[in-house]
């Protein structure tokens, strides 16, 4: 097995410790933090790189460049090291020290962009650089590359379908590039049109839920398809922090802030569902890359 083959096929965990108030309703979480790069973004990075290689757009030794708020950058840095390709990543300057360190440890270069402009600023900056030197780079363009969502269409959705024995009734997930949500729910709805897609987004345009977008105040990704969203749940940063702590202390799961948002949304939403419902959400990344955050209270 090589690094690429180690991506995916993650466990689907029961969150029974948190569901005492919703008896008869299954709330399950896909443990994406167990991917080799520590996040769900390994799936998208692998898919976009293999797609680039297959189409001849990524040539051996060519520099990979993209904008990221962190996790995709870590995945691209890790896989670029594996492939022998240099990696250049544009990150908002307020990315955590842990994320920057992980990227640099894999040998990638970081270009920091204006933190006031957040991930949109990083994206616009990388677009300018690619326009200046179009032949120099392979630009996966994670916000608009169909191979991102296809990773979830072809793997995440099928794994969830098999792991629940086809019993999933609701897929609940936050959106950044929206690749995880769109790819997964598109396939699940093909398998069973009754499955509902519940999107999660920060309750404020100013938030601390890393890797997620408040769609109305940011550049909408090309992958975003509002028609696949049946319902929208908004979660505050405080709720996400609180649930990340509960996951660590009550379930033994050290995951990141967006995982906290996803589980908080899944629990809130599933409280109103009929008995026998099965809601599945995503534990998007490991909490070890947020150790410098004060909300843990340690």
């Amino acid at each position: 097995m090589d690094l690429f083959e180690a991506v995916g096929n993650t466990p689907l965990l029961s969150l029974s410790q948190l569901t005492a108030k919703t008896p008869g309703i299954n709330v399950l979480a896909k443990a994406e933090f167990l991917n080799p790069g520590g996040s769900v973004k390994d799936r998208a990075a692998k898919s976009m790189l293999l797609d680039g290689l297959a189409k001849g757009r990524l040539k051996p030794g060519q520099t990979i460049i993209d904008a990221t708020s962190g996790n995709t950058g870590i995945s691209l840095a890790m896989m670029g090291a594996f492939l022998g390709c240099p990696v250049v990543l544009y990150l908002p300057a307020n990315a955590s020290r842990e994320r920057k360190s992980l990227i640099k440890i894999h040998g990638a270069e970081i270009i920091e962009t204006d933190p006031l402009e957040s991930s949109d600023g990083a994206y616009l900056a990388v677009l300018k650089e690619v326009e200046r030197n179009p032949d120099q780079y392979f630009f996966p363009d994670q916000y608009n590359n169909p191979a991102n969502a296809l990773a979830h269409y072809n793997t995440t959705a099928l794994e969830i379908w098999e792991q629940t024995g086809g019993r999933i009734t609701h897929f609940i997930s936050a959106m950044g590039t929206s690749g995880t949500f769109m790819g997964t729910i598109r396939r699940l709805k093909e398998l069973s049109p009754a499955i509902k897609g519940v999107a999660v987004e920060p309750s404020s345009p100013l938030h601390g839920i890393e890797g997620t977008k408040h769609m109305d105040s940011t550049i909408k990704p090309g992958l975003y398809d509002a028609a696949l969203i049946d319902e929208l749940v908004r979660i505050s940063t405080a709720e996400a922090y609180s649930m990340a702590k509960r996951l660590a202390r009550e379930c033994g799961l050290l995951t990141g802030i967006s995982s906290g948002a996803n589980v908080a949304a899944a629990l809130n939403y599933s409280a109103g569902l009929p008995q026998g419902s099965t809601a599945v959400t995503i534990l998007a990344d490991t909490g070890t890359r947020y150790l410098s955050e004060s909300f843990w209270g340690v």
Binding site: S69, G70, L91, P92, N94, A95, S96, R97, R99, P115, L116, S118, S119, L206, H207, G208, I209, E210, G211, G256, I257, R289, Y290, S292, E293
Partner: peptide, 9 residues
């Protein structure tokens, strides 16, 4: 500065 990237900033 929002800690949107999970950052301590």
């Amino acid at each position: 500065v929002p800690a949107i990237a999970g950052g301590s900033g």
